[in-house]
């Protein structure tokens, strides 16, 4: 039983250490560390562009498709 636990622990160390290193290598290779300016803007889109606050001036909230069923008063 103890041996199985130690094997599990060693395998876990190798696997999780390995995947983290692999993730770092993958990120560098696929250009995740390049064009950081564009990366920071990846959470914005044409509908919620840079310069438009959400939560605050979200005046178009009412006609979101998900509210179609709701009855406006």
């Amino acid at each position: 039983m103890t041996t199985i636990v130690y094997i599990l622990l060693a395998a876990g160390l190798v696997f999780f250490g390995g995947t983290t290193l692999a993730a770092f290598y993958w990120a560098a290779k696929t250009g995740q560390f390049r064009n950081l300016e564009d990366g920071s803007k990846s959470i914005f889109d044409e509908d919620e562009p840079v310069g438009t606050a959400t939560d605050a001036f979200a005046d178009k909230q009412a006609d979101r498709p998900l509210r179609r069923g709701a009855v406006a008063n």
């Binding site: 959470i43 914005f44 840079v50 959400t54 605050a56």
Partner: peptide
């Protein structure tokens, strides 16, 4: 995610945020 998204302003230094993640790791 929320601070840039609510303000409609990209994070100040994206480079630092990536550095922050990997140094935390």
């Amino acid at each position: 995610y929320l601070i840039p998204k609510v303000l409609g302003r990209p994070i100040h230094s994206y480079y630092l945020s990536i550095l922050g993640f990997w140094s935390l790791a």
